[in-house]
Simulated assay, not measured.
Amino acid sequence: MALTNMLAIQFTNALVLWFAGFRRTLDDDDVGKLGQIGLFLKRNSAVLIALIVIGGYLSVNFGKTLNEQKFERQSIALVEQSIQNQANYLVSHSFTHEEKNTHTLRVVIQGLITPSQAQAIELEQQIQALAKDTLDDRVIKLQIRFVPEVVIQSAPADESELKLSPDDIKNLQKVAKN
């Protein structure tokens, strides 16, 4: 990055000075063959070529980074979609790169309904299919950590806050009377 900045500053400096009229005096033969613009490009060709090469490399890396971020956003959206009809919510997520082509998506889900292994396998397959469309030859592993949510109140205001079935409430009332 620093090299790119130094080269860009050098080239821009040369360009500004050239436009301002600060040019080397040369023989008329050199100017006639290439012209003023040609001479400028000839003198600065090494810097210009280096900028083009580095710019191309940075552009390719930027494109890969954008694809990875898109994949990560879509993967998290799949996880959230898979738990949207449950009493669960996504607490956190992280992607780790374990090997060159192996990545692990770790999610922490909190709620009332524990996801099954079959649900985890199905979700991992969906994420892997997404990886085939977005990324090249990457194996995606999914790890789900489930944290059960327990609500404890000292004195609930009414029956709806207990979140118990009517039969459970009747049994609790019988125990309280005895």
Rank of each mutant, 00 (worst) to 15 (best):
T134L: 08
L34D: 08
V16Y: 12
L26A: 07
A2E: 14
D30K: 06
I52L: 15
R138I: 09
L90Q: 02
R106E: 06
P156S: 11
P115Q: 12
Y89S: 15
Q69P: 01
S75V: 00
D136M: 00
H93A: 05
L172E: 07
V175N: 09
Q81C: 02
V147T: 08
R138M: 12
S116G: 07
V60W: 13
A8Q: 09
S45Q: 13
V91G: 01
N5W: 12
S165P: 01
A118I: 06
A14G: 00
L3G: 10
Q110W: 01
T102N: 08
Q125P: 00
E122T: 11
A20M: 12
A77H: 13
L39V: 15
V31D: 00
Q84V: 07
Q153I: 08
K132S: 11
Q119L: 03
G32W: 04
Y89P: 00
P148F: 04
R106W: 05
Q173A: 09
D30W: 06
G63S: 12
K132R: 13
L105H: 01
F11M: 06
V175R: 06
I83W: 07
H103K: 15
K174G: 09
L17F: 05
R24N: 11
M6P: 04
L48S: 10
E149R: 06
A118P: 04
N88E: 09
Q10L: 13
S116V: 00
G32R: 10
L51A: 01
N61M: 13
T96P: 02
Q69Y: 10
V47Q: 11
L41G: 00
T25K: 11
Q86A: 07
D133R: 14
